[in-house]
Nucleic acid binder design. Structure first.
Length: 402
RNA sequence: GGGCAGGUGGCAGAGUGGUCAAUUGCACUAGACUGUAAAUCUGGCGCCUUCGGGCUACGGGGGUUCGAAUCCCUCCCUGCCCA
């Protein structure tokens, strides 16, 4: 059960200031949702995460189903108790793993891909891409995934997805019913409907067919859910404007408590902004919107201006474990030897405990020495920094600057 | 003192007459990473360059050869075994 109230709507953009009430406390929006896939923000314990201005976390059904299994979590009276996290929680449905363990693995790609020049031209129109078009990426050219295409390592049919467990290779079936049952056992405040996150190199026909499946699954998810948890439906449609609108309208027609926007829009920031705005235009104003898996620092203001209330992203935590700190003046790679002679804090304006107590030279040393505390310090700082950044945007909305 | 095995780029370790500035790994270095992978992918990694190439390099010195990291002599060093 959640209650979402919009406190202020921007006059300059679609941005809005909101407050979400849950059994586990309130969340001020717009809000970053740090990722705790395996019921942990990697490298940090829950008390530490509480000190990073984090208001809500998102865990993952698929991963927790594999390890330790939702029954274990249920026995511990749910995720909150299990991981000692007192604040609100979301769980993702496993829909992203349909992509990441499927085509994502086949092509060794992430969900966001640079669109080719030809796509840039066409993307602003409603016309679908010709099926013959190849998609250019940073890594070279990838074949388009056409209708009927299927990933090597998992099978997708109308009822759900047969995964191969990365642990022991056994087959694991996950469909809308299974996902909801798992998420009910986990007991987060907000759960997501089971979708297929379409690959970035999917053609129009594949995306459309996948979309219809995601829509059907959304209906089943709503029917299956027996708990009092709130459930968000997920809009798909790839980078095709008409499919995005169709999906938004359909998902909005169902009785969801809020809405996720999944998949990707290419890495052209302008197109992304326009496309999110189109989706948002077709969603009910009064309910929360969550942009799934997007949140590079330079994206955040844009997506909030487009009307997004929540967004989760692995960037602050994942980059931290690659030695990268986010700062007001850009990214720093603490693995670089030059920081061994740098006695400044990570960010001169940051008030997090890492920036108060540690210097770049020490963190750089920890990175070079492969000491895990270095990863933890960077993770802490990055989350705090991102949360502060979003806090700043909330202030700007409040004061009418955005 | 005798016998044997070795000495190759920051390290480990291939090569055993020309296609070798020298496979590969590590380290180093630069970049990538968007519903998670705490190490993955891509590039660089002797010096100089007008990007054609030039110079210096496989323990030191000498030799054979059109040509040597590779063959011979000698010296130095290391490891193991025997006295």
């Amino acid at each position: 059960m959640i209650d979402f109230k919009i406190l202020k709507k921007s006059k300059k953009s679609k941005a809005r200031l909101g407050i979400l009430r849950t059994k586990h406390g309130v969340v001020e929006t717009p809000c970053l949702v740090p990722v705790a896939t395996q019921a942990v923000v990697k490298t940090l314990n829950s008390e530490e995460v509480l000190k990073t201005k984090t208001q809500i976390l998102i865990a993952n059904s698929f991963h927790l189903h594999l390890k330790p299994g939702e029954k274990i979590v249920e026995k511990s009276k749910g995720l909150h108790k299990f991981m000692n996290w007192p604040k609100p929680l979301m769980t993702d449905s496993g829909g992203f793993q349909v992509f990441s363990l499927g085509f994502g693995r086949d092509f060794n790609i992430g969900k966001i891909m640079a669109p080719p020049a030809t796509f840039r031209k066409r993307a602003s129109s409603l016309a679908p891409l010709p099926a013959s078009l190849r998609v250019a990426t940073r890594a070279g050219d990838l074949p388009l995934i056409k209708e009927g295409g299927h990933p090597k390592s998992l099978r997708i049919n109308n009822d759900g997805v047969f995964f191969k467990s990365p642990i022991d290779g056994r087959e694991i079936f996950l469909g809308p019913r299974e996902s909801i049952k798992i998420q009910e056992a986990l007991g987060a405040d907000i759960i997501f409907s089971f979708d297929e996150c379409t690959p970035p190199n999917a053609d129009y026909d594949y995306t459309k067919k996948s979309l219809l499946k995601t829509h059907k699954w959304a209906e089943i998810c709503i029917k299956t859910k027996e708990s009092e948890q709130s459930i968000f439906g997920i809009v798909q449609g790839g980078k095709y404007y008409d499919l995005r609108e169709e999906s938004a309208r359909f998902i909005a027609s169902l009785d969801f408590d809020g809405f996720g926007i999944g998949g990707e829009f290419g890495d052209d920031k302008k197109i992304m902004k326009n496309m999110i705005a189109r989706v948002v235009n077709n969603l009910p104003q009064e309910r929360p919107r969550h942009l799934l898996g997007i949140g590079h620092l330079e994206d955040i203001e844009n997506i909030i201006r487009s009307g997004v209330d929540f967004f989760d992203c692995t960037v602050p935590t994942h980059y931290a474990r690659r030695g990268i700190a986010f700062t007001k003046t850009g990214k720093l790679n603490l693995s670089q030897a030059k920081f061994l002679n740098d006695e400044k804090p990570l960010d001169l304006t940051c008030s997090c405990s890492v920036c108060w107590n540690y210097k770049r030279n020490y963190i750089s040393h920890l990175m070079k020495a492969k000491e895990i505390t270095g990863l933890a310090l960077l993770t802490f700082h990055n989350i705090y920094f991102f949360n502060s950044f979003v806090e700043g945007i909330r202030k700007k909305i409040k004061t009418g600057k955005i």
